[in-house]
Amino acid sequence: MIGWWRRAGPVAVAAMVLAPAFGDPAVDGYPLSSYPMFSTDRPVRADLVTVVGVTGAGEAVRLSPELIAGADEPILAAATVAGAVRADQSDRLCAEVADRVRAAGPDVAEAVVRTEHVDVVAHVADGAGPLAVTVHARCPVTPPP
């Protein structure tokens, strides 16, 4: 039993971990993964979805991943907003974010779910702002008087 186990163990592990490399590269899993992160060719001009706050003075401010998605992972926040936009549920997400912002207390009058069309290289290198913005939903944060 142990002899068989000794021989098969490393081979079985290798086969399992390597298997996703022979499958559809777009399909990922856990814990056996095709490890697609960092591998796709991202466009320089990218559409980045997010939720921002708008102050009473009309200034857009960044919200944290916790306020956007209820958890501290930015990549989860990105997936959450993208999923809501894709499923045409931006209004619902906006209301959820507004509730979290209201509870957290920052000086924000409105939450806005939006896609920012960004030159990511210029943004990172020079802090360039979005080239264009598409608003999917907006909702009040400050409770009505």
Partner: peptide
């Protein structure tokens, strides 16, 4: 660039 820009827009 993409990963960092995405982080930035997500606060």
């Amino acid at each position: 660039a993409f990963d960092n820009a995405r982080k930035d827009v997500l606060g």
